[in-house]
Design a protein around this nucleic acid. Structure first.
Lengths: 335, 335
DNA sequence: CTGAAAGCGCTAACAA
DNA sequence: TTGTTAGCGCTTTCAG
């Protein structure tokens, strides 16, 4: 029974003009304390909230942020998506914004989907993730001068509103852990699907290997389907001179390493030290427990929202990206 | 540089009055074919989209649906969330609606969060999931007469806009598969966290056991943390007269069964037939592959959106819920 | 079939 | 400090 309560109704109920109601909500300092209190009580009691459309029409601001959700392979949906969204929604809600999900319709490009929302002035800005080195969406948003913030580094010519995890450093640290345990022959298992973060992790591996004077090999699986990962890993584990320490480019790959090790009769944590990245919840079932790096999703989300709103509300574009440390979680797979 | 294109600009560019533009968009049949074509071309070329706020203010409709996201335990986020959201966003986008994510702020109840959005008239309706038998959110929305649709059955007194998976039947079928392979001593492994869908699966198990005259035991793990699941399962597997066939209440539990079986030196698919529910992508790493039931997320999402929009746009509340079949996926764990 | 006028609910500029 | 006036961009009457 939403009785379509308007500012007028509230004004009448409180015995003041509608301006006073508006002021109570938007410029409380202009009201006499006594009036403010009385009016606020009425607003509260009636449960009045200004109509968002009317307010937006007037102010030009929507208090809505679009999140361009990544294309999610149904066979391998990102298991961290739920947690990331939760963090983003919470961070935005904290400052009075809501999150709108955006996905291109079939046959529509991501840029077109963006344009549609911009033209209809439905949102104040955009949040992006899974940024590519040369990201068309970023280029497009930057060219249009539309406010956005990105989870993942954007190219130098573009607005530096990004937030990212310092994967390079995190993996260097992982390699350091292997070195400290005496491993000399180590390997990196990555996927060659071309994601920049995988490249960063690989780069961290190489830097770590160099720093510790280890012998480091790289292995790459072509896609991210489990069967392929297991096959590739088994091949790696049966090669002569197999590594004693292995850095997986992500927990999804590490899952394959457990399966492969089992198939080859190798015991992780004893025959093979394994470290990884992502801290997927499902790895809690692995035996022995997986050493990995947790992504600081809450901090990422907060930083993204705060950077975006700096542009939207204050017109200030941050001049440098923000690199957040990963959180190493040491467990038994390290040996 | 969004030049804030208004209907007036487009009218001028096309050499017609602004009404004609509005008509071209909202009542094309009123225009002469030739005019419509010419005007549409201009609209297209300029990339004009009516301001959503202005349109909403006038029409009272927002073309936005709120999805009240379930509280996601960070330690065990629902891995299907990403896929479900994707499906919902796609289904809504197909008919010109967008999805807004809603989560209560700290200290705020879900009902309050709903009220806030309703009062501000930010959305046209709500989508809910993880419905409880006696769901306060459902009661609240129904009492306010706010349009909503639910993934999960709502109580009889409430609007029957729900869509659900027929878990009972699906599990009966699973038990049938075990019976056909000669299993007589079977068990159900559930969690006692009180979710209705777990009860449905349990009920399906009992019905199946009855139908096939089998001996069926029930086991329950208190929470959903992996360690607890594995411990409980091991206890079950080491009891004398252990079951030869096991129905897990969900893949998350099945993951624990694999771990427990391994620890006990039992081979799934040979020493123990295992069937489950959900088809989590991560189970693709399991050896042998898990027999389970896939949730028809796309169909669920489409049905939810279509039912909700029937209420919103046509004022028609469906008189009965919709029960969709699960999709059994037979793999080697069945034996 | 197209043009003029009114108003959705709100806020910001001004007047009292 | 409060009340009055105008107008955000659009759609929807109603005349032409």
């Amino acid at each position: 029974m939403s009785t379509r309560l308007t500012i007028e109704d509230v004004a009448r109920a409180a015995g003041v003009s509608r301006q006073t109601i508006s002021n109570a909500l938007n410029a409380p300092h202009r009201l006499k304390a006594e009036t403010l209190e009385r009016v606020s009580a009425v607003i509260e009691e009636l449960g009045y909230r200004p109509d968002q459309s009317a307010r937006s029409l007037k102010s030009g601001t929507r208090r809505i942020i679009a999140y361009l959700t990544p294309e999610d392979d149904p066979a391998n949906p990102n298991p961290l998506m739920g947690g990331f969204l939760e963090a983003v929604v919470a961070a935005a809600g904290e400052v009075g914004y809501r999150i709108l999900l955006l996905r291109p319709r079939p046959g529509q490009s991501q840029e077109q989907a963006i344009d549609e929302l911009v033209a209809a002035r439905t949102v104040d800005g955009f949040l992006l993730s899974d940024i590519l080195r040369d990201d068309a969406r970023v280029a497009h948003l930057a060219a249009q001068g539309v406010p956005f913030a990105a989870f993942g580094r954007t190219a130098p010519g573009h607005p530096q509103t990004w937030v990212d995890v310092d994967s390079v450093q995190a993996v260097i640290d992982l390699v350091g852990l292997l070195a400290a345990r005496g491993h000399r022959r180590v390997a990196f298992l990555g996927s060659s699907t071309g994601q920049p973060w995988m490249d960063d992790r690989r780069e961290g591996f190489l830097a770590g290997v160099r720093r510790h004077g280890m012998s480091g090999q790289e292995f790459s699986v072509p896609g991210d389907d489990p069967a392929g990962i297991v096959t590739a890993t088994r091949a790696m584990l049966t090669a002569r001179n197999r590594p004693t320490g292995l850095v997986a480019g992500g927990d999804w790959l590490a899952l394959g390493v457990y399966a492969a090790a089992r198939a080859e009769g190798l015991e992780i944590g004893r025959d093979l030290a394994l470290v990884s990245f992502d801290d997927l919840p499902v790895t809690a079932f692995l035996q022995p427990a997986l050493t990995t790096v947790r992504l600081p999703l809450r901090r990422i989300a907060e930083a993204l929202v705060s950077r975006l709103l700096q542009i939207v509300e204050e017109g200030v574009t941050p001049q440098a990206g923000l690199l957040l440390p990963g959180e190493p979680v040491i467990r038994e797979s390290l040996g």
